[in-house]
């Protein structure tokens, strides 16, 4: 599905293979990422949740769990797509060596997107298992939360790869943070959209993470509506645009 399908149809799957080779030894880096969303769930959901009560008839931990799942998929994907791709592109010269083989910029862009998406998915699965055990999945629709997390990961991985090709130094990562943090805080993660004045609500609705959270929340709570395909289409679209930008930029940077 999504970037995996693209990767298996191009030579992108070879980048996936390389990354598995690397992380077989550095598994701690990936493993440690599982816990952050869980810590948030216990702290905000069960700790603070006591003072919040129910939102739309849903207990607070169950309300934020899907949001944390979507954020986990986003963070895993974006972190990998920006930091790792930037390093390989500017310092590691990893892609230079790949382009001396039959691999081309498309394979690199697609393969790295697939990997970043995969990392996001891993975190989503880890979180999902725990959240389900805690009763946060209230409907059989919840099974669709994982494919939804894949779409979320794809969208953010694609955008992340695209952005990574524009970063010039480690200082530029501050700019990435300046976008990510407000998105995490204001996209309906911890409270419903109705808290905002109407004008602001429309700003939040275009945030990619808001769409991701709506999508996953619809499934875990079983409130599936026609917004779901819209949310998914939006995320798929930004992912595709990101990959296309990355392919062009990488060709420009590497094939000179």
């Amino acid at each position: 599905m999504t970037a995996f399908a693209l990767a298996s149809r191009t030579r992108g799957h070879l980048l996936f293979e390389r990354n598995i080779m690397v992380y077989r030894r550095a598994w701690m880096t990936i493993f440690s990422g599982f816990f952050e969303p869980l810590f948030y769930l216990f702290s905000m959901g069960y700790g603070l949740g006591h003072f919040v009560g129910k939102i739309h008839g849903v207990s607070y931990p169950h309300y934020i769990a899907p949001a944390l799942l979507a954020s986990a998929a986003m963070n895993g994907a974006v972190y990998d797509a920006t930091t790792n791709v930037f390093w390989k592109l500017r310092y590691g010269k990893v892609y230079d060596s790949m382009l001396a083989t039959p691999l081309g910029p498309v394979d690199v862009a697609v393969g790295e997107t697939a990997w970043a998406q995969f990392r996001g998915l891993l975190y989503a699965i880890g979180f999902m298992v725990t959240a389900a055990a805690l009763g946060a999945v209230q409907s059989w629709w919840g099974l669709l939360a994982l494919p939804a997390a894949m779409v979320v990961g794809f969208g953010f991985a694609g955008v992340g790869i695209g952005v990574a090709t524009f970063l010039r130094s480690w200082q530029d990562f501050e700019l990435v943070q300046v976008v990510l943090l407000p998105m995490f805080l204001f996209s309906g993660t911890f409270y419903p959209l109705s808290v905002y004045p109407t004008v602001l609500q429309w700003f939040v609705r275009v945030s990619p993470l808001y769409n991701a959270i709506s999508l996953v929340r619809s499934f875990t709570l079983g409130h599936v509506t026609w917004y779901c395909p819209l949310n998914a289409a939006y995320l798929l679209a930004i992912g595709v645009v990101g990959i296309a930008v990355a392919r062009r930029r990488m060709a420009g940077l590497l094939l000179t």
């Binding site: 603070l48 003072f51 501050e174 300046v178 911890f190 409270y191």
Partner: peptide, 27 residues
């Protein structure tokens, strides 16, 4: 210059999101 942006922005963002946004639903 790179750090000042986050130093100023982070507290304002957190306060707005937690204090005001989340604050509106905490009893």
């Amino acid at each position: 210059r790179g750090t000042i942006m986050t130093s100023v922005l982070n507290p304002v963002l957190y306060l707005a999101a937690m204090g005001i946004g989340l604050g509106s639903i905490v009893k």
